[in-house]
Design a protein around this nucleic acid. Structure first.
Length: 755
DNA sequence: GACCTGCTGCGGTATG
């Protein structure tokens, strides 16, 4: 870990010399000197004078392990040391993961001990007695999660002004993860409420690795004054990037077990995923690596393939699955092997290992299938190439439909491979998705309405609006929407809120029940799950939505099992070992691919250029896809009639706009399938004329918003949505997941000039 | 055609 903080020298080295260093408090300088750093990191040199000489908001953006935490804390701690005025926490650090808070605690503990400054880690695993002591004698540094901070507001509302009376700064780690998400909006609401409680502005410092749009990031850190947020961006320690994209043609249906010995008899004529497994086995073995797969199901499949190959070759297994559904014990086992780096280990994982805890630098990042976003791809690549002179290595695998087989026109375009290429190209260009903006977040607003009422023991409608929508982050919610939200929450059979005779708003009976339970503190939803157990040893969990039955075989933790008993009431499944099994389908709502990615995909299909990082199969597949694109005539007109009265409709937009048009066309009596940048449409009734429908949409003759309300399944996707009516759900969805305004223009492009 | 994240107070009983 020392290496991740600053360059170490030989014992003979002298004290680091820089003007930034001289600004730090004497005991901090002494601590650095004792640790024999030869110098400060680039981001530290930049940040120290800004933090010591001013009190403005600041974003520190630099690569993982570039020393951002110290860049913020060395000067802030120096300031506190020279001018402490308690009681109250002097500094607050907000981290999105418990493990991250534990990591930061260990890093700050030693320095703070030297300065006789207290550090208080505070999250769900910290014993209540420790939290009580911190609350009774608040000083030093508080390291806390957004949810634990929420719990403080709900349970200790009256103590908030005292706890944060002297707070100088709030450091927000992994800022990119807390922008326009439910959690990000929740946190920003808490920060505003904290300032309102103490009656003054508190400096905000955001730490981040990946930020697509720095101006938007400033607006999120300080909505009322984004221009006054200073940004320090360190481009030091950027390493060379080496990319390879390999394609594997498969004729197998996707839901088959990838390497079933009963089918191929172990003779090696494996399916394409089996061949991907063989390549990973040969090229990743003996090192530390991460292999990202698109879903938990794929993680299980490839873990099973890699375990089977290892056992067949009588080699100790060094490939392990890692995702949130597996037990803490198993995940710790994999993380510890990666962190210590003594035994070769490859984690096959979902986004669990994308950010947060420090697992050191891995040799290579593998990626099976196209990523969901360029931002996430960049974050994943940040796990490799972190040692000086070490390149970042990315091996991407695309499993594509077999060439020359009888494929549907949309399959001939090989959109999976094309998306992988588009995303790699955008990554190299330095582009990544900007955070969504202008979303209403009515679910999180409901959460915060209940929280503010509890904190203050009741509040007027005006005060709630002022706190949350004028001062706080819900700025796109106007008074009309806010009033109808309050009416809705008060009008339910079991009202969440009610109005007292003096006009103030209080919690209703159901509101009280919800706020009193500890599950209230998180603003995001958690699905219900079954625990899977083998002879009293827990293996992991799977969502209750998966259809399961006794005798069924499944793959879990990369091994094969047979279901013996399902205890529905206890939500537990007992399993025994088996030789067969397929990974469960975990389900979920599909991710949204950005407009810019789809536009680049169109360029990849229409350009002559051949990316240099493709293997020979990928080249062949791309050449065929380009030819199919030219033959499809999609380049000249976006609407192409296929056989069987079906149509291919190119929107050339990202998922949100394509999905909105799909919902409208479905409501008009068509069967619609959504792909990247295009729809396959089949009218269900021979009397339906799709061209006429598109003309009507283009000229505004169809009432789009009334059609969207039909798709209610699409509208409920956040924790408190179940308390809202269809009108509120629709305007919330239209602010984030749907885009009705874009639909007429797409329709117009499809049907050409209108008379 | 997806992934991840978080969580308190109190009452019961056993032990020194």
């Amino acid at each position: 870990m020392d290496e991740s903080v600053a360059t170490r020298s030989r014992p003979s080295a002298s004290e680091p010399k820089s003007s930034a260093f001289d600004l730090l408090a004497e005991p901090v300088r002494r601590w650095i000197w004792r640790r024999r750093w030869t110098g400060l990191r680039d981001i530290q040199e930049q940040a120290i004078p800004r933090l010591m000489h001013a009190d403005g908001d600041l974003i520190l953006a630099a690569a993982t392990a570039a020393g951002k935490t110290e860049a913020a804390f060395l000067p802030l701690i120096s300031q506190v040391h020279e001018d402490h005025s308690g009681p109250g926490f002097d500094l607050v650090y907000i981290g999105p993961l418990r493990a991250l808070i534990n990591d930061q605690f260990r890093r700050l503990e030693d320095l703070c001990e030297a300065l006789k400054m207290k550090v208080h880690p505070w999250h769900g695993d910290i014993p209540a007695i420790r939290k009580r002591r911190a609350r009774e004698n608040p000083r030093g540094i508080l390291l806390i999660t957004p949810e634990s901070l929420e719990a403080l507001f709900v349970l200790r509302g009256v103590e908030i002004p005292r706890l944060f009376a002297t707070t100088r700064a709030i450091v927000i780690d992994e800022l990119h993860d807390l922008l326009d998400s439910e959690r990000g909006v929740h946190l920003r609401s808490l920060l505003t409420r904290m300032e309102l409680a103490v009656g003054r502005r508190i400096r905000r410092i955001g730490l981040s690795a990946t930020l697509g749009d720095m101006a938007l990031a400033s607006a999120y850190l300080r909505p009322e004054a984004p221009d006054r947020v200073e940004q320090l961006i360190s481009r030091a320690y950027r390493s060379e990037l080496r990319v390879e994209l390999r394609a594997y043609a498969s004729s197998q249906p996707a839901d088959r077990t990838f390497l079933d010995e009963d089918e191929d008899g172990g003779r090696g004529n494996a399916s394409a995923p089996g061949a991907v497994g063989e390549h990973i086995f040969e090229n990743f073995r003996g090192q530390s690596n991460l292999v990202f797969a698109g879903s938990r199901r794929e993680v299980e499949s490839y873990s099973d393939v890699l375990r089977t190959i290892s056992e067949r070759k009588r080699i100790p297994v060094e490939f392990f699955p890692h995702y949130s559904g597996l037990t803490r014990e198993h995940r710790n086992f994999v993380e510890k092997r990666l962190k210590e780096g003594k035994i070769p280990t490859t984690a096959v994982c979902t986004s669990t290992l994308e950010l947060g805890i420090d697992i050191g630098s891995v040799d290579c990042v593998g990626h099976i299938g196209p990523p969901w976003s360029v931002a996430s791809l960049r974050q994943r690549l940040g796990r490799t190439g972190r040692r000086p002179g070490q390149p970042a290595v990315l091996r991407m695998y695309a499993v594509v439909p077999q060439l020359h087989a009888r494929l549907r026109p949309v399959q001939l375009l090989q959109l999976g491979l094309v998306r992988s290429i588009a995303m790699i190209d955008l990554l190299v260009d330095g582009w990544c998705e900007p955070p969504a903006k202008d979303a209403l977040h009515l679910s999180t607003l409901t959460h915060q309405i209940l929280s503010v009422i509890t904190e203050r023991g009741g509040a007027s409608a005006q005060r709630l609006y002022d706190t949350l929508c004028i001062r706080g982050p819900f700025r796109t919610v106007d008074t009309q929407v806010f009033a109808s939200l309050l009416r809705q929450l008060g009008s339910l059979d079991n009202a969440l809120i009610e109005q007292a005779s003096d006009g103030s708003i209080l919690l209703g009976r159901q509101g009280e029940r919800i706020v009193e339970h500890y599950s209230f503190y998180a603003a995001f939803q958690t699905p219900q799950e079954f625990r899977v157990v083998h002879r009293s040893t827990a293996l992991g969990t799977i969502p209750v939505t998966i259809p399961l039955s006794k005798g069924m075989t499944i793959i879990l933790v990369g091994k094969r099992w047979r279901i013996e008993f399902i205890h529905f009431r206890e939500r537990t499944i007992e399993v025994e070992t088996d030789t067969r099994g397929a990974p469960p389908i975990f389900g979920g709502y599909p991710g949204a691919v950005h407009d810019t990615v789809v536009q680049r995909m169109r360029d990849v299909l229409s350009d002559e250029a051949m990316p240099p990082y493709l293997d020979s199969v990928a080249q062949e597949v791309l050449i065929a896809a380009k030819a199919a694109y030219r033959q499809s005539a999609l380049e000249d007109r976006p609407l192409v009639r296929l056989a069987d009265d079906r149509y291919l409709l190119a929107t050339w937009t990202g998922t949100i706009k394509s999905m909105t048009l799909a919902i409208v066309l479905t409501a008009l009596g068509n069967s619609v399938e959504v792909f990247d940048g295009m729809l396959e449409v089949s009218p269900l009734d021979p009397d339906i004329d799709l061209v006429d429908q598109l003309k009507a949409i283009a000229t505004g003759q169809v009432n789009l918003s009334s059609l969207v309300k039909v798709g209610e399944g699409v509208l409920e996707f956040e924790k408190f949505h179940r308390f809202l009516n269809t009108d509120l759900l629709a305007i919330d969805a239209l602010s984030t997941r749907l885009d009705l305004d874009a639909v007429p223009e797409i329709a117009r492009l499809c049907v050409g000039p209108l008379d």
